[in-house]
């Protein structure tokens, strides 16, 4: 080592600040009675179509807003607003592959939280990075679609281990793919024994009732 070089020990995980911010945000949302759902999936799994179906089913029972996180564009936020009439805002991650708690808080600052029961955060389409960063949500959920294959829980173990709800979308195309639903459930439960699995088809609406019930129940428990 060069003369005069001084070493300063830091010994700090780079996730530490984010975890603190996430816990603080979660506590604040709990106090306000707002349930934040962090919804994740790979690109093209049908997050936005599922949200439109779901929101239209529950919007008369709970007051809901949606935050769309993408690297660029506002197509999703516009689509949600047009199809459901609920407030939706678009967050840009500036090239980042995930949202963290600070970005989530900045997004929430643009939503009038008072009087809301539910905010759904549609995270960046990606099965790797979003799993590593706590957003401060009450619950993590993900959508896996049939064309992606039933082996995904084995390939992306962290994502499946942090999600307590796995929605299996595009059930209508099952006959065209070698997707084994039982195997998929088995793999999901290997990663997270507590996970609830709900098969749906966002296009036809099949199974979306059950998803809505799950969510309404979650919101009720969060407010107690």
């Amino acid at each position: 080592m060069e003369d005069g070089v001084k070493v300063i020990e830091i010994k700090k995980s780079i996730f530490e600040d984010n975890e603190k911010e996430a816990d603080a945000l979660r506590a604040e949302l709990k106090r306000k009675g707002v349930y934040l759902l962090n919804l994740m999936s790979s690109p093209g799994s049908g997050k936005t179509t599922t949200l439109i179906r779901l929101v239209n089913l529950i919007k008369d029972q709970v007051r809901v807003a949606v935050m769309e996180a993408d690297i660029d564009s506002d197509v999703d936020a516009v689509k949600i607003k047009e199809a459901t009439g609920i407030p939706s805002i678009q967050l840009h991650t500036g090239g980042m592959c995930h949202l963290d708690a600070e970005m989530t808080r900045q997004g929430l600052d643009n939503v009038a939280l008072d009087g809301l029961d539910l905010v759904i955060l549609e995270n960046v389409g990606n099965l790797v990075c979003p799993a590593e960063f706590d957003t401060g949500s009450a619950q993590n959920a993900m959508i896996l679609s049939v064309p992606e294959g039933h082996d995904k829980p084995l390939k992306y173990p962290l994502m499946f281990s942090i999600c307590n709800l796995v929605v299996i979308n595009k059930m209508d195309v099952m006959p065209y793919f070698d997707f084994d639903l039982d195997k998929c459930k088995e793999y999901i439960h290997m990663r997270n024994p507590k996970a609830t699995v709900i098969p749906i088809c966002a296009k036809t609406g099949e199974g979306v009732d059950e998803l809505a019930q799950w969510l309404l129940n979650e919101i009720k428990n969060w407010k107690n």
């Binding site: 080592m1 005069g4 001084k6 300063i8 020990e9 830091i10 010994k11 700090k12 995980s13």
Partner: peptide
Amino acid sequence: SEDTVLKCGNEVEIKEIEVL
């Protein structure tokens, strides 16, 4: 058994910095 838990190996931490 598959009932196993990671003890260490997922660290991403700043150990130290060197300054003049």
